[in-house]
C-alpha cells in the first residue's frame, strides 16, 4: 500500500460492498473513540500538570480522528447517522473497536504501555492508509499520521523512563506489557472485511503490517530493559472486538460516555 500519493478527495468511492466499507471505517473510528475516552479519564488525575495536559492532548487528538472517521462511516452507511449518533446511540455489541483499547486505564504504567502498543499500530496503519484509493480516508490518514507520530514519541519516551527507571516503575510497566500482549493479536488478524478492503485498494494487507509493528515495539521494549512475553498473542476465532465481542469493561465505559446524550436527546450547549 505504500508508495502512491493520496489521490485528491474528489476520487470516487471505489465499488465495494457498502457493509464492508462501513464496518472498516467503524473499526478505525471506534478504536480512537474508545481509547480517546479512556485517556480522557486521566484529565485532572495526571501525575504532574504537564503530563495531565499531554494526555488530554492525546485524548483530544484521538477524539478528533474518531469524529472524522465516524462521520465518513455514517456517510458511507447512508442511513442518516452522523458521528454523534454513532458514538452515543449504538449498543456495546455494535462497537467495532479492538479489545486492547477498551480495557480500564489501570495505573499510569498500564496506560502508557497500552498507548505505546496502540500508537505504533496507529503509525503503521495510518501510514499504509495514506496510500488508500479512497480519497477521503487517505486524507484523514495523512492528517492523523502527524498526530500519531507525536503520540508514539510521547509514549515511547515514557516506556524508556518507566522501564529503565526504578524497580517499582519497571515492575509495573513489565506487568502491563505481560497483561496487554495477548490483546495485540487482534490488531493484525485480517477477516473478510479486511480482505475486501485490501482487494479494493482501500486498506493494507493487515497481516503484513505486523512484522513492522513488532520490530518497532521490540526495539523500544528492549531499550527499556523490558521483555515481551513468550506466549503468542491470542487471536480469537470470533475476531473479538472487531465483530462486536467485547470485554465486560466496554459496557460500563459506554454507560458513562453515553448517558448525557441519551438522557437529553438533541441537547445543545
Amino acid at each position: 500500500m505504500s508508495g502512491p500519493a493520496a489521490p485528491p478527495s474528489v476520487a470516487p468511492v471505489p465499488a465495494v460492498p457498502t457493509n464492508a466499507l462501513v464496518e472498516y471505517l467503524l473499526r478505525l473510528g471506534d478504536d480512537r473513540l474508545v481509547l480517546g475516552h479512556r485517556v480522557s479519564e486521566w484529565c485532572g488525575h495526571g501525575p504532574i500538570l504537564e503530563e495531565d495536559i499531554a494526555l488530554s492532548n492525546v485524548s483530544l487528538d484521538l477524539l478528533g480522528q474518531a469524529t472524522m472517521l465516524l462521520r465518513l462511516a455514517g456517510d458511507a452507511e447512508g442511513r442518516g447517522r452522523n458521528e454523534d449518533a454513532l458514538a452515543y446511540f449504538r449498543e456495546v455489541v455494535e462497537f467495532r473497536n479492538c479489545q486492547l483499547v477498551e480495557l480500564p486505564k489501570g495505573d499510569f504504567a498500564f496506560t502508557i504501555a497500552r498507548q505505546f502498543l496502540f500508537d505504533v499500530y496507529a503509525v503503521v496503519m495510518l501510514d499504509a492508509l495514506t496510500g488508500s484509493i479512497h480519497g477521503e480516508l487517505a486524507a484523514i490518514a495523512a492528517k492523523s499520521l502527524k498526530e500519531a507520530k507525536y503520540h508514539v514519541r510521547h509514549s515511547g519516551e515514557w516506556m524508556l523512563r518507566l522501564g529503565d527507571g526504578t524497580d517499582e516503575s519497571h515492575r509495573r510497566v513489565q506487568k502491563a506489557i505481560d497483561d496487554l500482549w495477548r490483546f495485540t493479536g487482534e490488531l493484525f488478524a485480517p477477516d473478510d472485511v479486511d480482505r475486501a478492503m485490501q482487494a479494493a485498494g482501500i486498506g493494507p494487507d493487515l497481516a503484513a503490517l505486523r512484522p513492522t509493528w513488532e520490530s518497532l515495539v521490540r526495539d523500544v521494549v528492549s531499550r527499556a530493559t523490558l521483555t515481551i512475553p513468550n506466549d503468542l498473542p491470542r487471536v480469537a476465532s470470533t475476531r473479538g472486538g472487531r465483530t462486536g465481542s467485547h470485554t465486560e469493561y466496554l459496557g460500563h465505559m459506554l454507560a458513562e460516555m453515553q448517558i448525557i446524550a441519551r438522557s437529553h436527546p438533541g441537547a445543545t450547549w
Partner: peptide
C-alpha cells in the same frame, strides 16, 4: 516555564503546554 526530567521530556512538555 515547566517541569521535566530531561531535555526530551522538556521539549515534549513545551510542545503540549505552549505550542498545542
Amino acid at each position: 516555564s515547566l517541569h521535566a526530567v530531561n531535555a526530551e521530556q522538556a521539549l515534549q512538555n513545551a510542545r503540549d503546554v505552549y505550542a498545542r
